[in-house]
Simulated scan of single mutants.
Amino acid sequence: MKKIPQKWKKTRMKQMNKFKDVMDNILSEIDKGSKFVLTSHVSPDGDNLGSTLAMYRFLNKTGKNVYYVLDDDIPSGLSFLAENIEKLSSSQFDDNNYIFISLDCGDIGRVCVSEEIIKNAEKRICIDHHYSNKGDFSDINYIDVDASSTCELVFNLLRRYEENMKTEIIDSETATLLYAGLLTDTGNFQYSNTHPSSFEMAKVLLERNADRDRVVQKIYQSNSFAYYRILGDALGTLEITDSKVENARVASITVSIDMMKKHGIGYNEIDSITPYTRDIENVEVGIFLKERKPGEIKISLRSKNFVDVSKIAAAFNGGGHVRAAGCTINDSIENARKIITDYVLNSF
């Protein structure tokens, strides 16, 4: 059995200790503040929603006025996470004297609210785990690129609050939100960002009555009929290209606006097609391209072993993680596929 290196354990513990001052600084600002605006990145995913809404519930439970603002739709498969929480658009928010908290946003271009809301905040706090985050759009940054998810950082923050206040703040609903984000960002504990701390976090959340069965059923076992119809069409676009490295091929799948219209499914409802590009024998990099609007192609990149897809995404003004990243190419979907595939092949 492969053991976790002692060096890794010590490094992770050192990282955790390093962020105690940052966490205490954030908790101090929360204690002093009375009004908060929370948001995350465009195209909501499980970690986006889990971290933001867990923070929302924490602030609400500690007597703060909290506004959840996001200029995007929540995918139907994740809407259960936002039950009983009102989501506002930027145009619906008109207030002042607030602290702004962005969660799971690697750069300011991904923050899914208006520039005015960011600019007018009394203070800006960023909680994130993306490699691409330079920490240049917030006053206080809690950025840990070694964390499995932003939900793990929120979990650490709430546990720090519990330690300082000698009380429990993570209830069943908050635990469920954090578990959802942890599960999705680790790919159900399959991805390389799954660490011992991920399982320790899961243990605590289950002890706090996280509704594991509901999360699993809603996220992984409730796909619509339309999803499977478009998945069939999408797999029909699959292309696999050999690289100069043996047993390290590149696979790509495309989904156009016309395909989404044909099956009556939304842009944010099909991201779970992405792993199909990577989960093929001898494929090192998977590429999923979906057309947001004519001439704007969202690209999701996944790798298995040695390709750092965050560097590839960065070349197109995107970002993400070593094994999972994304970017946008403004071109036709056919040209975008050729451009990104050629770039990936040249990066081997």
Rank of each mutant, 00 (worst) to 15 (best):
N84K: 15
S224C: 08
I240A: 10
S28V: 06
G318T: 10
D258R: 13
L182C: 05
K244V: 10
I30T: 10
E122Q: 09
K290P: 00
I170E: 12
D233E: 13
D146V: 07
K134M: 13
G187I: 05
S34R: 06
F36L: 02
S192V: 08
G187R: 05
F19R: 01
A234K: 08
F306C: 11
K290S: 08
N193L: 02
F155A: 01
F100Q: 08
D331I: 02
S300W: 01
R12K: 10
S91P: 14
A210Q: 13
V37W: 10
S252D: 03
I26L: 14
M16C: 07
N60V: 04
L158G: 05
S198C: 07
Y267F: 15
T174C: 07
K7I: 14
T241Q: 06
I329R: 00
T39D: 07
N346K: 15
F93I: 15
S138I: 08
Y161P: 07
V69F: 06
N25H: 14
N247M: 06
M23S: 11
S138C: 15
D211S: 04
N120H: 08
F93S: 04
N48F: 12
E207A: 03
I340H: 06
G319K: 09
W8N: 01
T241M: 03
K7T: 13
E284M: 10
I26A: 12
A251H: 05
I230P: 00
P294W: 13
M55K: 01
L49M: 13
V22P: 00
S102T: 14
D136H: 06
T237K: 04
A121F: 12
F316Q: 02
